[in-house]
Design a protein around this nucleic acid. Sequence first.
DNA 1: ATTGCTCATTTTATGTACAAAATCGTCAAG
DNA 2: CTTGACGATTTTGTACATAAAATGAGCAAT
Lengths: 226, 226
Amino acid sequence: MSDVVAIEAPAPDTAEPAASVYELIRDDIISGRLTANQKLIVADLAERFGTSTNPVREALHQLRGEGFVVMTPNRGARVRPMGADFIRDIYEIEVLIEPMLTRWFVRIATDEDIKIVEDLCVRMEQINYSDPPLHGELDTQFHHAMYHRHYNRHAVDLWWKHREILKAMSRRYPTSMARRVAVLKEHRDLLEAIKAHDEERAGAIVALHVEGSGKHIIGQMTTTPR
Amino acid sequence: MSDVVAIEAPAPDTAEPAASVYELIRDDIISGRLTANQKLIVADLAERFGTSTNPVREALHQLRGEGFVVMTPNRGARVRPMGADFIRDIYEIEVLIEPMLTRWFVRIATDEDIKIVEDLCVRMEQINYSDPPLHGELDTQFHHAMYHRHYNRHAVDLWWKHREILKAMSRRYPTSMARRVAVLKEHRDLLEAIKAHDEERAGAIVALHVEGSGKHIIGQMTTTPR
DNA sequence: ATTGCTCATTTTATGTACAAAATCGTCAAG
DNA sequence: CTTGACGATTTTGTACATAAAATGAGCAAT
């Protein structure tokens, strides 16, 4: 009797929670496995995911609402092209939002809060781009640690959505040596401003930081053939 | 996103294009006919619109993607509550975005461009709040005239989406006398700054203008019982 | 040959009907 | 007051029907 129980949960949370159709398509778009303007044919996707068409149709419509997919009546869905101009648009908005979020963090940060971002900063300096994916992950955590508790959920959600797109984008292009050292320095500068509780300076540094990242990626996008 | 077409504009709106289920539900949410947190039952909506369930399901998912609807697995969709905090979130973002859009307009505006916004400004002064809905319409056109050609489509779309929410919200609450005179003055000041091609001043005025509108509505929301 | 057209055929999106699974509400028993 | 069973409600998934659009073969005019 007791040997038939607990078939669920073989481990805490190691097992993936069986990604939804929505997430699968979304990841395919963001990661670039689905190319710009590619047609998203409901029947094909349904077959590929082993479901019927309705889940796909619903996922597509949600993605459309989020802007990842463009739909035209009676002619279906296409992957939203995320070219250099779109990336620029996003960065221009982030240049405004991230300083706002950062200033708030500087205002409310306790010593423990600061300790967390400092640790992340140090780890990034230690690996020194030897492991780009890990650096990217730490970079995201660095900013996330500052922003995630902000009261303006709308702003944080927007930041996160943009972040996911930009993260995926920068994964497709290399980071120049010059930019690498700049990023490390900017993070360090930001950390100092935070420690000094200098709200204005921290905001200004983040603005520069975001702008620099944006300029760099767009440069890579427009020069690299791909 | 950029498929958000020109629904507004002084267009020949003779024959309605038979509003889609999506638009109907969306309008019901924004206008407040559907109240906060109200359950959106697929079968009911389908019956109300005289369609089958699939169009409703797709509309709901798009709305979810746009943030107007909140869905939880196996327990359906609810109207996203748009309380004072959410409105504050939106205004805080607009305080950043609108000045950016305005500055660009000041930079590129020709005399004809300025003429258009001036006319709108004058008309608002003439009706002097005798017709609040009309004032709201002109106000939207005033800003739209400045922003709609901006190269950052993402920012413009975001502004428009926010604008629709805020327009509907302010329609539900009265505008105080003090606020009325302030709005007229701010518009006039802005116009002068534009005419003087003073980018910085125009941006600063818009920031104040948006902030003032936000503060006012939130004040109304938190004091008026409703 | 190439272009541009019609028209039948196939593909695909969109709408309807129904089945399975989950949730919610109610009410009786403890 | 809480628990648990059971029926009604509602969500979620599948299968199919219809209508619109893409495709491509055939053919006439340049």
